[in-house]
Nucleic acid binder design. Structure first.
Lengths: 138, 138
DNA sequence: ACCACCTGTAACCATTATAATTACAGGAAA
DNA sequence: TTTCCTGTAATTATAATGGTTACAGGTGGT
């Protein structure tokens, strides 16, 4: 299963986007997510590294570097998920076996196409969409 | 990352499909995959449980229960991956926070759509396709 | 009946990823 | 200077994964 960082990161961004004029400390965000502030700061760090948010050391309040309608779930996924392939493939299949010999490249292709499908879907939804869903629900 | 069981299971099924008239012992399959025979038997067990193959205790040789063209990568994925959701979501977001309150259901929907996209892709490729790729490559 | 070969499965271990937590150096702003 | 904050290192518990040993019991040849 894909780690909860993706879910938490989306939660964080939705929170920031929903209160653009407030400076939310990591403790506040942590209490909304219900986890430890350090977990939040770690994820904020990854989002910052990817250029999705701005933060200032020592000062509360992260802000989006672009409109929430231009941050896709794929952007978030890529920011917090270091691995670039979703599917693991066994390392050393037997090269003397006709199947073992070619299986890696065949699996790599098939899995990468599947991952593309996933990522294409994720790129079709933005933080803004999440916010709208969130507040349309009530 | 998704475990190597999916990759190994596809490898196994391709091997079985490629030698329909031979009774392959788990040791033989293991040496093609390059792992321990018990790992193979464990995966064969899951594939059997899902009705994809037939085996006989004490006797070498698994066989497909239907043509390789009717076994999709999604069938394999589902057989060896017990979890039904691909994305994990944090357990107890704060219900007193407007974002925390609704985030679970919004994430569940978004993630389930993404997973659908992935699964739709996997269901479009069969073990037969894998075999053809494998032997077209040489 | 015996034996070699096999499957099915339990049990155990090492490795790794994750998430939670404590601790602390140092920035920001009053 | 004091308070509140971020950034990050270090540590821990937990869980999943894959490799391994061990063994009960089925299969089929002799």
């Amino acid at each position: 299963m894909i780690n909860t960082r993706v879910a938490v990161a989306i939660h964080i961004l939705a929170l920031i986007a929903s209160k653009p004029h407030e400076d939310l400390p990591s403790d506040y965000i942590a209490s909304s997510v219900n986890t430890n502030p350090v977990v939040i700061r770690r994820i904020l760090g990854m989002l910052k590294k990817e250029g999705l948010i701005r933060t200032t050391a020592g000062k509360a309040g992260a802000s989006l570097t672009r409109p929430s309608s231009e941050i896709t779930l794929l952007d978030v996924f890529r920011a917090v998920e270091p691995k670039d392939s979703l599917f693991a493939v066994h390392e050393n299949p037997n090269p003397h076996c006709p199947v073992g010999k070619g299986i890696r490249s065949v699996l790599d292709r098939a899995f990468s196409e599947a991952q593309d499908a996933l990522e294409r879907n994720l790129s079709g939804e933005t933080i803004e969409d999440i916010l709208q869903d969130l507040f349309a629900e009530e």
